[in-house]
Nucleic acid binder design. Structure first.
Lengths: 183, 183
DNA sequence: GTCTATATAGAGATAGAC
DNA sequence: GTCTATCTCTATATAGAC
């Protein structure tokens, strides 16, 4: 796409640094100045690349949208499968990259901000996936259970404070959980 | 303790309102003014009851400390039990009150703030519990898995965005998850 | 215990030169 | 594309009267 010659493009560098800071200190605990300092540039320069602070985190989230669309498509194509919940959850798991993990951490660290920014947005494609997985008559308990299955990676991330698991460790445990929860 | 005559004490009223706002809009997304307005008083009045904004959220968390201490004690007393992980997780589950759930939501909504406020504090008693549950030679995977088991309620809460489950629904699903994960 | 008034600092954001 | 300088607003927090 872009004419990437030597290092990374400035915009990508900004996103990279912002992702780390937002995840660690929180969106509102991170000032534009913090990001600029970490990059060795001034606040003003950031506004050349992004119209405002929200725009930075919006860009971070936009990068992941297509993945959920792909999941929805996959689920539609396999709607008749037996054991669809487990299969879909494992399919989602198999697509988990380090980038997605970072985005998950970002979202977990900034729930109120993400909620604010996504309310009024397009309807969550994840909801469509659950409709397909569960059918129209699922109990509340089954709805909750299915969501936990699908959020296995999130659950491991949430629980992993204090343990320094590698990406492989996290995915392996998430996979084990998915299997144990879907007999 | 306090001479509670008519309504709740003002301090408790403040904590109640602050808990809701911090959970919904986030700690830094909620101003002292927001809290004061919701209570029909002025910002200054809040500073009579709490030395600063951090103090409010610190009080909120302090209220839960004894519960973890109790869990640690229970685990020490049952250290020789077979199936200790499941038993301890279910014991923890059985002590889950609406107040604890709210505290969990607060913590999940404000991870960076909580981290900042608890770093350098006393060592997490939860860590001691996991030491007892796992022993010294547990693999990273087993450590992660045990933490997920214990965080079943958190996992359900995290996954339950978009589903309006009652307290009973949430606890029932969490219990089911604990059982399924601990054969 | 609650108020009015105010101090102070830091945030996000813009203008305009280079 | 990055800078300096600056604007403006809002936040936390305090002083002191009642």
């Amino acid at each position: 796409m872009a004419d990437k010659t030597a290092g990374a493009t400035t915009r990508d560098e900004i996103l990279k640094v912002a992702l780390d800071l937002f995840t660690d200190k929180g969106f509102e605990g991170t000032s534009i100045r913090d990001i600029a300092d970490a990059l060795g540039m001034t606040k003003s320069s950031l506004y050349y690349h992004f119209v405002n602070k929200d725009d930075i985190v919006a860009s971070l989230m936009k990068d992941r949208e297509s993945e959920v669309d792909e999941l929805l498509e996959w689920t539609e194509q396999h709607a008749e499968l037996n054991g669809l919940l487990r299969a879909a959850a494992l399919h989602w798991l198999d697509g988990t990259t380090p980038e997605r993990i970072k985005a998950m951490r970002l979202a977990q660290s900034n729930q109120p901000v993400i909620r604010r920014m996504t309310e009024g947005a397009r309807s969550d494609p994840f909801e469509r996936v659950f409709d397909l997985l569960l059918g129209p008559n699922a109990s509340i308990a089954d709805q909750l259970h299915a969501r936990v299955v699908f959020n296995a990676v999130n659950a491991v991330l949430l629980a992993s404070r204090g343990v320094d698991g590698s990406l492989e460790d996290i995915l392996a445990v998430a996979r084990r959980i998915v299997v144990e929860l879907t007999p």
